[in-house]
């Protein structure tokens, strides 16, 4: 199990978190159809590092961007996103 450091709550067990999608597959409202389709239906799916959107669903509910290695599960970086991340 991964120990995920929430930007708000500190290190917490993975059971408190849910995976949403990769960052590059978040479709912007003004994306053109071809780009939206690309983002919705394909993934780089690397056997290495990727940026993923996770949520501390069973905790403070903050959205997080996690840079994680897909083979070793090594977490390289975590940053908060959304209004919570504003100063």
């Amino acid at each position: 199990m991964m120990l995920i450091t929430c930007s708000h709550c500190g290190p917490r067990a993975q059971t408190e978190f849910t995976y949403e999608r990769t960052v590059d597959s978040v479709v912007q409202p003004d994306a053109d159809p071809a780009q939206a389709m690309e983002q919705l239906f394909t993934r780089a799916n690397p056997r290495g590092l990727d940026d993923e959107l996770w949520r501390h669903t069973f905790g403070c509910r903050a959205w997080l961007v996690m840079t994680r290695h897909r083979v070793t599960h090594q977490i390289e970086a975590i940053r908060a996103v959304g209004p919570e991340a504003l100063p």
Binding site: M1, M2, Q14, Y19, T22, R43, N45, R47, D50, E52, W54, R70, V71, T72, H73
Partner: peptide
């Protein structure tokens, strides 16, 4: 969640 690890949680 995405993984290539061939081992689960």
């Amino acid at each position: 969640w995405p993984s290539y690890a061939q081992r689960g949680q």
